[in-house]
Amino acid sequence: MATVETLLKEYIAAHRAGDEADPRDWLMRVEGRERALLAAMIDGYLERAPAPEWDPEAFRQSGLAPLAERVDLALQGQAGTWPAVLPSLSHKARLKRSDLVVRLAAALGVPDKQEKVGSYYHEMERGLLPAEGVHDRVLEALGPILGHSAEALRAAGRAIAPGAVGDVPGAAAFAREARPDPDFAAPAVSSPPPSPAAGEDDWDEVDRLFRGG
């Protein structure tokens, strides 16, 4: 255990000094059970280690803003973790939004309504569209495109407990920063297209698919 404790002390010193402190660099120096023991002890240290002080500039440079925005969209939206999950799945599938929309519209049997399907898909990604209103047919069409089951996508849409803005009577459907700070604002994932139902009197098949449940 002596070697492990020596390496743990070195690791703690590096972490406290603000170095990168990638534990794998220390784990590589031992093998077998000692490696497992060192990993567990580093983990024990990191569980207790003080978190860094909030530093807006470091946050901006960290590349974490898109993640924070996705989490926030999920919290504020009405579609569970879709705002975090859907962009990630399409990215992994190496699908451009436009290609995904073409395939989704075709799979839904509305290839001539790509623009409207695209707008609704955008709302799904932003958490603006209540998940329970999205018909199973949409998820059954979307699942194979993204490489996952409709059931898994449905479950992701339900993942967050009540309390989001959409559950608060009178609250805006999608509140953003109440006190926006232009220096802090995270970059938007994408610019919002107009709401598909806005200004339309006719409720068509696409509306029924995405909003009719």
Binding site: P23, L46, E47, W54, F59, S62, A68, L75, Q76, A171
Partner: peptide
């Protein structure tokens, strides 16, 4: 309460992510 959560989420992500990433990396 329907109040914006962007800033507390950003602070939590910033404070937690680096060590979570280290722990997962092992």
């Amino acid at each position: 309460n329907g109040t914006a959560t962007g800033l507390p989420v950003a602070i939590l992500v910033y404070k937690l992510m680096s060590d979570v990433r280290r722990r997962v990396a092992m």
